[in-house]
Amino acid sequence: MLLNMRVNGINYALDVNPRLRLLDVLREKLSLTGAKEGCGEGECGGCTIILDGLAVNSCLVLAHQAEGKEIITIEGLEKDGELDRLQQSFIDKGAVQCGYCTPGMLMSCKALLMKNPNPSNEEIKEAIEGNLCRCTGYIKIIDAVRAVADSKEGGN
């Protein structure tokens, strides 16, 4: 099928097998390998991207379901060589260890802040409840989101 979608501000028309998962399309057709497969069943959140403003597991989305959609991946957060404040906060707060969950974690947090610039800690935890991390115990990740939300520019 011909798949039309907009990824990180660029329009694509791709000839893809409709049975492919969006995760595979991003990783293999567009070489956007930031999204990771940690389980393939929507349980780990490693493949999280933002689809029409919502954080979704791209391993659970079939290619045809992305038709006409607006997608942001981890590669789309940095603008003109400048990190998104959330990315910078992850660095500043030490929220990154092995980094494998980081792209998915960032996208879940970004989607949260896009909708809710000033979330409570409970809301932050809820936003990443589907993102597993084995390294950090989530504590510094929550701190990083908190810091952005509490900054004078706010979460958005």
């Binding site: 992850f90 990154v96 494998y100 792209p103």
Partner: peptide, 20 residues
Amino acid sequence: TLPIHDVREKVTGQLRYVGD
């Protein structure tokens, strides 16, 4: 406390793991 050496590649999704 300094950040982990490859943190920028990690937060931008640029770090290539073997599966990439």
